[in-house]
Design a protein around this nucleic acid. Structure first.
Length: 437
DNA sequence: GATGGCCTAATTAGGACTTCCGGTGT
DNA sequence: CACACCGGAAGTCCTAATTAGGCCAT
């Protein structure tokens, strides 16, 4: 019997990197109508332009339950939470960004570590990594019914400061861990900085601006309607022990990632809409009353409406969403701080040019779609392919332009020259300074 | 019938939370 | 008083690893 995971992850598996992708059009794949989710398009700026044409294609299903789902915010959040296969983006991304290639040596300093030392010694292959868990004697591990050999340890969550074999971790699992989820939120303009924001991207410090909302989103993702900040906070606290997160002393709702992916997309205050403090009247639970309020998160579709409802912004000739960083904010801010962007030069250039960014996953989807041109009869799939194709072309053309302008940019781009993406760099860890410096 | 290879369902261990709780601090 | 925060303990859910057993070919 064919497992669901097989259907989806056969083509989502990451044993092909971006540089290989281009040359592997014959890469066998199973396509299950992997349509890019609206939030991907929102990242790329595609939503505002294309979604009018493809609104139906990317329409997010409305929930049946009444009250909370009337909130537009959650519809938008669905783009993060309710993907059929959430990790086609996320796990792929983080497995690439967090999991160093074999042979990489991690010397990430972690401020509050109880297990990282063991982890560095050899996470997966080192049994002592799990010193937190009491291990039964080997004899008890044997099945009563069947004699079992001692099993190999399963790869744990790819904590940023440990070495995990990539293929061991990403064998088709589709779990989006909480820390990954938070990173996703921090890279989503519709949530960051409104509900969660960077305090100091340099050190990985972020704040849950609206802890209730973030918890709700997390609960929605995990299909735990009763999720609250207290519960989510417990999960966060477990990350202290594992060296994934630190608590920033003396500051409420402020946490710190011990490591971040190199190609993290940093959304600063200037990039997003006004942030929303953690008061009840703005909590997503009461979104009904806030429906018309622009403090709610717009869905991807709705973001189009929002943009259209705003005074017309001059759009680029390439029909890309107007750069968020160019949006004027009424309040003055300290110069040179709040818009700090820690992207590698090669990708930050693209950011600065406000070009759509195609994730590796999107490209992979595109590649696979290209392989099944016979699916043209399948309208939605083919539309997606067309959509991504045009986007990819735009991006490639722009990347070439960028390259010609700034020839001094990083030469370590191992991707196809025509396919400059935000996710194609060699996975690299960025150790972060501790919060208590 | 014996053997080996392949496949699949069942079983199991373990990771990652989730839930609950009592407590402290702001 | 509300809320954030802490950490222990037990439970749930999910997935990967492992195994038994069925089927088929030789």
């Amino acid at each position: 019997m064919l497992q669901q995971s097989e259907l989806i992850f056969d083509f989502a598996s990451d044993h092909v990197n971006m540089s290989q992708l281009v040359g592997y059009l014959d890469y066998p794949a199973v396509i299950v109508e992997q349509v890019p989710h609206p939030h991907l398009l929102s990242y790329t700026g595609l939503a505002c332009e294309q979604s009018q044409h493809h609104q139906q294609l990317f329409k997010v299903e409305q929930y049946e339950s009444g009250e909370e789902e009337t909130m537009e915010t959650l519809v938008a959040a669905d783009s993060l939470l309710n993907m059929d296969c959430p990790d086609t983006l996320s796990l792929e991304h983080y497995s690439q960004t967090f999991l160093p290639s074999l042979g990489d040596v991690i010397t990430t300093p972690v401020t509050q570590v109880t297990v990282s030392a063991e982890g560095i010694v050899g996470a997966v292959d080192q049994p002592q990594w799990h010193s937190l868990h009491t291990k039964k004697p080997a004899g008890q591990l044997q099945s009563k019914k069947r004699g079992r050999k001692p099993r190999h340890r399963r790869a744990e969550s790819p904590t940023p400061d440990i070495i995990v074999k990539k293929d061991k971790y990403n064998k088709g699992g589709n779990t989006l861990y909480l820390w990954q989820f938070l990173m996703e939120l921090l890279q989503d303009r519709q949530v960051c900085p409104r509900y969660i924001k960077w305090i100091n991207p340099h050190t990985g410090i972020f704040k849950l601006v609206n802890s209730k909302a973030v918890a709700r989103l997390w609960g929605k993702h995990k299909n735990k309607p009763d999720m609250n900040y207290e519960t989510m906070g417990r999960a966060l606290r477990y990350y202290y022990q594992r060296g994934i997160l630190n608590k920033v002393e003396g500051q409420r709702l402020v946490y710190q990632f011990t490591s971040l992916p190199k190609d993290m997309i940093y959304i600063t205050d200037g990039d997003g809409t006004k942030e929303e403090e953690d008061d009840d009247h703005n909590d997503i639970d009461e979104g009904v009353s806030d429906d018309s309020d622009d403090s709610t998160i717009p869905s991807s579709d709705q973001s189009v409406e929002e943009e259209n409802s705003h005074p017309p912004q001059k759009k680029t000739s390439s029909s890309v969403r107007a750069p968020a960083t160019q949006r004027t904010r009424p309040s003055p801010r300290p110069s040179g701080q709040r818009d700090a962007v820690l992207r590698p030069a090669s990708t930050s250039l693209i950011q600065e040019q406000h070009l759509p960014i195609v994730s590796a996953e999107m490209l992979r989807t595109l590649q696979n779609l290209q392989k099944v041109q016979s699916l043209q009869g399948h309208a939605s799939v083919f539309k997606t392919a067309q959509l991504l194709g045009s986007l990819c072309e735009q991006q490639a053309a722009a990347a070439v332009a960028v390259d010609s302008e700034g020839a001094q940019e990083t030469p370590d781009d191992n991707s196809h020259p025509g396919l400059k993406t935000s996710k194609v760099e060699t996975p690299q860890l960025v150790p972060l300074a501790s919060s208590d410096q």
